[in-house]
Design a binder for these strands. Sequence first.
DNA 1: ACCTGAACACCGTTCAAGT
DNA 2: ACCTGAACACCGTTCAAGT
Lengths: 255, 255
Amino acid sequence: MVTQTRRSQRRRQVLSRERIVEAAVELLDAEGEAALTVRALAERLSTGSGAIYHHVGNMGELLQAATGTVVAGALPPLRTPADSRQTPGSTGSPEDAIRAVALSLFDAAAGHPWLAAQLAAQLTRSPWGAVTPRIFESIGRQMRALGVPRRDWFATTSTLVHYILGATAQNAQNPDGTGDGALPASAEERSEFLDAASRAWQDLDPDDYPFIHDIADQMREHEDREQFLTGIGLILTGITAGRPPGTPGDHPGAG
Amino acid sequence: MVTQTRRSQRRRQVLSRERIVEAAVELLDAEGEAALTVRALAERLSTGSGAIYHHVGNMGELLQAATGTVVAGALPPLRTPADSRQTPGSTGSPEDAIRAVALSLFDAAAGHPWLAAQLAAQLTRSPWGAVTPRIFESIGRQMRALGVPRRDWFATTSTLVHYILGATAQNAQNPDGTGDGALPASAEERSEFLDAASRAWQDLDPDDYPFIHDIADQMREHEDREQFLTGIGLILTGITAGRPPGTPGDHPGAG
DNA sequence: ACCTGAACACCGTTCAAGT
DNA sequence: ACCTGAACACCGTTCAAGT
């Protein structure tokens, strides 16, 4: 019976949800969010617009799937391979593991200029759906090793995740401001962009914006990744403050 | 000449950029983001679609302006009134001032369900434009009083702002998941929503998501505002850690 | 079951024409 | 200068019709 069905596929079934999502990511990467239309996608897949809807409910679902696959691809695998009980990086501190997860998201957003906006949109539209648990899991697993009491796990993990998503959103490489820009910005573009932004800050009324005026030059010279890690560090300090490293939380001691 | 111009206005000029932005906010609040169309706005203002474009460049600019006015209205005034050198709350700690600013944004997002998505979108599309300096200024001013060395001001303020925007985005009250939902959700809706989300987390494969499984009940019972303030507290702890309160940074002593 | 592609009901934006 | 509203060039989505 199964064979029958399979045989009847013959040459058809060139399309699949997977292929569509894959093509969507390619289109987003190459031409930006505004270029992802059902018609453009159909043409790229040499099919009609209606065919898309046989595999994907609607445009929003497609964007969600595209975001999900890219995020899943960027994060470490959820399940450690059964043959190697020890993860390669398992000798590192939990702080380092968190930094690695955070950076992988940060870098994924730099490589896919449309990703940050989609992450943010999905965060506001379906806060607990799809992509959030994946990120929560990767970060939250380190709470035990950090010595955080179990009752604080949700709060501390949430804080890290919110920071990561906020910082990732701001540092999406869209210096042209269009948001549909292809390809990450060059270092030169970035520099010009920060120069202009810094000058704009300088031009604000110093009576209204004394602080902005003061730090306009720091803004121009900051390094995205370094600044991002500083923030992670501050939060980790806050989480572990007053709790000497190695102090167990309210969980049973290491097995 | 000026009088001439003014006289010739007579009955016309019923429209203005200000009136348009105001109407846009009303429409967004009442019917959600999807309902804000040029045609709907024109009808609400009893005019033609084209008239909108005499005062506003395009839809994006209008959304930016709407977001800007709501944020500006939520935050404390930039300039202390000249007659009262002492701000009413100026006796409080800088930590409290930061918490107040953070909460005012958090609450604004709860009152305007469309706001968080717009803040996030503008953060990714024009990271340093419009609304960001306003928020930076309100938070950053407290860095001196916190005893943070000047060279760290940009980093510490960025961390707080990124966290605030990330957390605000997630806590936008859109439990229906449509994102264009009018009116903040009721407590009952919120409860049902968290119940469903918590159950969804429980249903994830515990081999893939052991952590999510563990904290599903904490997620259901968390209080948005309380959780939000906990995160602010963690970051403030990280910022001031190792720096006893009252320790001056690298800035001159209090005047 | 899977796909086609015309058709429908919308969009944002422009622009000749009015006052 | 300010406004009108038809027209243009798009959208996402649906659905009878094909294979």
